[in-house]
Amino acid sequence: MYPASFNYYRAMTLQEALNLLRQHPEAKVLAGGHSLIPLMKLRLANPPALVDIGRIAELKGIRRADGTVVIGALTTHREVEFSEELKQWCPLLPEVAAHIGDPPVRNMGTIGGSLAHADPAADYPAAMLALGATMKAVGPGGERMIAADEFFLGMLTTALQPGEILTEVHVPVLGKGTGWAYEKFPHPASRYAVVGVAVVVRVENGICREARIGITGAAPRAFRATNVEQALAGKRLDEATVRAATENMVSPEGLLSDPFASAAYRAHLCAVLTRRALLRAAERAG
């Protein structure tokens, strides 16, 4: 409940933040704080310094650039949940955001903070994989784009380098014929995902042209169910086909296990939730 001491530096611009991180390489970045502060209160994280980027105006906001939606890293879960623009352009994200934590948590927690933290049971990673999102990172060596598939490396580990800040999330505008869904089985205590499945399908004339499935909570890092994606390409997304494609889709080996849900149960949930998400997405794709 009482974090250890640290030095505090506040950046008002991205450049200032990068400079501060260079001067204090031991520092952690503080955005909304809803991934980091809980760990600090339990003294599971004791960073000697924090660089607060929470007030940097250029990291805020949601805008559209052609077929891409650009979401500033400081956009809160709440802003995503209620964004009228996102509901039109990329409605999967509001659906996912509504499942994160609880309303007061969503008022503070940010999309960039959540992704950079890479909790294996966080909700957004599943969506990023399903959407084929790209993260923009800015560091001492300039900026670079990291595909979601390359971003989540392991438990609390991402492709971000020391000194780098995640500044934007780029997701595609979901057009006509695209369906989406997020199915989550929350842990009853933490409300993190025991398993969360995000799905985006592109359907033409009743045939699935592309399916992308991101799964969180089940494994030490979020992953894509490529076997199911491939099995469904070119198929009709009816109940029987989807059931066949999802049954035993994940092996329990390597999955997370805790007193509430074993690896075997998580594997089972992956199949059930993926099927439910796919069928809901297919219906939305029309």
């Binding site: 409940m1 704080g33 209160k41 609880d102 008022n107 503070m108």
Partner: peptide, 29 residues
Amino acid sequence: VGCDTSQCGACVVLMDGKAVKSCTVFAVQ
């Protein structure tokens, strides 16, 4: 203050009009 894992909500206040868990916000923020 009812918990130490940002869950119980006993600490909720309004910050700039929005409910936040004041146990998960530093005063400097």
